[in-house]
């Protein structure tokens, strides 16, 4: 007989995603939902969506959720977690939200060792507002606000969030992953799972940075976007574990 071995996870809502075709948000959402299912925490998880393309993320998970002001998700999640320390709280944030306007909130939440988990999606561009330069935009990359290509002299350098955060003492799990192939999807899921387990164990702050495509604003088709990510983004933002104080989770 046949059995559904891969199917939409339970904690993902029925609502269809609002993302563009080929955008990695949907893959990352699914991985988070799979982890929630596997850890059996759906009924005790609170989520905080950001402002940006994933502003609707609170609608895509069947868990209690809210939307934070732009960049403030770690502060909102802090308030939730302090009010309900026995609950699991995660934020889902893009690079415009987390790495520009929300820089202070993420650094201090990490540094306090706030017992929350952040899923940080880095696609090197502002998606929702129409493809403007993000702090993570690569040098030379053309966006609607760096139409001649990002120049270090005037626009500064791509910001490396994981490299910055690894110095904060309160962070217990920090990994940068991508979802550019089935193999990487499997690794990304393991990272997200470990980040949630870190929180479940009450160890401290955990964050997984996920490199993502933005086919629409990069002006590439979904497959070309993955190639571009592999060739360019991974050079600027190398994949790997930055902090692991969780240890063996088996």
């Amino acid at each position: 007989m046949e059995k559904a071995t891969y199917k939409k996870p339970k904690s993902l809502a029925e609502k269809e995603f609002s993302y563009c075709p080929g955008c990695h948000h949907g893959i990352i959402h699914r991985l988070v939902a799979e982890v929630i299912d596997e850890l059996e925490i759906q009924g005790k998880t609170l989520m905080v969506a950001p402002v940006g393309c994933s502003v609707f993320a609170y609608e895509f998970f069947d868990v209690d959720g809210t939307v934070a002001p732009h960049g403030r998700a770690p502060a909102v999640a802090t308030g939730m977690k302090r009010a309900m320390p026995e609950r699991m709280v995660f934020t889902y944030q893009g690079d415009g939200d987390l790495a520009a306007i929300g820089t202070a909130e993420i650094i201090h939440a990490a540094n306090r060792g706030e017992k929350i988990t952040t899923i940080f999606v880095n696609n090197a561009i502002y998606g929702m507002t129409g493809g403007q330069m993000a702090p993570t935009t690569l040098l030379g990359m053309k966006t609607t606000t760096s139409p001649y290509g990002r120049k270090a002299e005037t626009e500064g350098f791509p910001i490396h969030v994981s490299e910055l955060l690894k110095e904060t003492a309160g962070i217990v799990y920090l990994e940068r992953v991508s979802v550019s192939s089935p193999q990487e999807v499997i690794k990304a899921k393991a990272a997200i799972k470990k980040a949630f387990i870190a929180q479940k164990k009450g160890l401290g702050f955990s964050l997984v940075e996920v490199l993502s495509t933005c086919p629409t604003n990069w002006g590439l088709d979904p497959v070309e976007s993955i190639n571009w990510l592999n060739e360019n983004m991974k050079k600027e933002y190398p994949i790997g574990v930055f902090v692991d104080k969780v240890g063996d989770i088996k």
């Binding site: 891969y6 199917k7 939409k8 996870p9 993902l12 269809e16 995603f17 993302y19 075709p21 080929g22 955008c23 990695h24 948000h25 949907g26 893959i27 959402h29 699914r30 979802v179 192939s181 089935p182 999807v185 499997i186």
Partner: peptide, 8 residues
């Protein structure tokens, strides 16, 4: 296919 599908 499931793993890479962005739309579940």
């Amino acid at each position: 296919c499931y793993m890479m599908c962005p739309d579940a």
